[in-house]
């Protein structure tokens, strides 16, 4: 049940980010100055942490989505759904640790 709640919550969060992300990227069609100014506003530690949270949500939604596909299409999927959830959480951690080391050192590394 909690994986289902998590899948819905992360899905909605990602969707609203996507709406904003297409709008900010569309500024490339306005002018280089407009795009670079708005993207520049994202380049601070608070937004850097927000990006880390967003990626955490995306990675969970991605791996849990693959688990849902396994439960739906693999013969033994429903039987092992609980073990698959542990697999999702393990893969999430294995993906997030190197990502966070790299991303946060870029964000907080100063430039």
């Amino acid at each position: 049940m909690w994986s289902w709640v998590g899948h819905r919550v992360t899905g909605v969060v990602i969707f609203f980010f996507l709406l904003v992300h297409v709008l900010d990227t569309s500024l490339v069609r306005v002018s280089p100055e407009a795009y670079t100014a708005v993207i520049g506003a994202y380049k601070n530690p608070i937004m850097g942490l927000g990006e880390a949270g967003l990626v955490a949500a995306i990675v969970f939604h991605a791996f849990n989505g693959l688990r849902i596909i396994a439960v739906d299409f693999w013969k033994n999927g429903p039987k092992y759904q609980r073990q698959l959830l542990w697999g999702v959480l393990a893969l999430w951690a294995v993906t997030m640790i190197p990502f966070l080391i790299r991303h946060l050192s870029i964000v907080f590394g100063g430039h």
Partner: peptide, 28 residues
Amino acid sequence: GVVLVVLIFGHLFVNLMVGEGIHAIDFG
């Protein structure tokens, strides 16, 4: 969903992990 896992993981890797990461993102 399966296709998006590949597309978005590739997008995040190229834009956030390679080179200078998010600092490199500008109009150019």
